[in-house]
Amino acid sequence: MLEFDGFQGRRRLAASLLAAALVLAPALAVAQQAEPAIQAPAAIPDPKPIQPAQSQTAPLASLALAAQFAGDRRPIRSGLVWRILSETADGTPPRIVARSTDAEPVFSLEPGTYLLHAAYGFASGTKRVTLGPQGLRDQVAISAGGLSLAGSIGDAPIAPAQLSFSVFVPLQGNSEGRLVVDKAKAGELIRLPEGTYHVVSTYGDSNAIQRADVKVESGKVTDATLHHRAARVTLKLVASPGGEAFAGTAFSVLTPGGDVIREAIGAFPQVILAEGDYVLIARQEGQVHSRDFKVESGLDRDIEVLAK
Rank of each mutant, 00 (worst) to 15 (best):
M1H: 14
E3A: 14
D5T: 15
R12C: 05
R12E: 12
L13S: 00
L13R: 14
A15G: 12
A15L: 15
S16M: 15
L17M: 13
L18Y: 05
L22Y: 08
A25D: 05
A25N: 12
P26V: 15
V30L: 14
A31M: 11
A31P: 11
A31N: 13
A31W: 11
Q32L: 11
Q33N: 09
A34S: 11
P36Q: 09
A37E: 13
A40F: 11
A40H: 08
P41I: 12
A43Q: 10
I50V: 07
Q51D: 00
Q51L: 08
T57K: 01
P59F: 05
P59D: 05
A61F: 10
S62V: 09
A67T: 09
Q68A: 10
G71V: 13
R73F: 15
R73Y: 12
R74F: 03
P75R: 15
R77C: 00
G79Q: 09
L80Y: 08
V81E: 10
S86A: 11
S86C: 01
D90V: 07
D90I: 04
G91H: 05
T92N: 09
R95N: 05
V97W: 14
S100W: 14
T113V: 15
H117M: 05
A118I: 04
A119H: 09
A123Q: 05
T126N: 02
T130I: 11
P133K: 08
Q134C: 00
R137W: 06
Q139L: 03
I142C: 03
I142N: 03
G146L: 11
L147H: 07
S152Q: 11
S152M: 11
A159S: 10
A161F: 06
Q162P: 04
F165S: 01
F168L: 01
F168E: 00
L171F: 14
Q172C: 01
N174P: 01
S175C: 04
G177N: 10
G177P: 07
L179P: 14
V181K: 06
V181W: 12
D182L: 15
D182Y: 15
K183P: 03
K183N: 08
A184D: 01
R191D: 02
Y197L: 03
H198S: 00
V200A: 01
S201A: 04
A208N: 01
Q210N: 14
A212S: 14
V214R: 04
K215G: 03
E217P: 05
V221T: 15
V221C: 01
T222E: 11
H227Y: 07
H227D: 06
R229V: 11
A230Q: 13
V233P: 09
L235T: 06
L237Q: 02
S240P: 04
G242L: 04
F246S: 10
G248Q: 06
G248S: 07
G248T: 09
S252R: 15
L254V: 06
D259H: 14
D259I: 12
I261W: 08
I261D: 02
I265E: 02
F268C: 00
P269I: 10
Q270V: 06
I272P: 05
D277G: 07
L280N: 03
L280F: 05
I281R: 10
E285S: 08
G286Y: 10
Q287K: 13
R291F: 02
D292S: 13
F293I: 12
F293T: 10
K294L: 00
L299W: 03
L299A: 01
D300C: 02
R301A: 00
E304A: 13
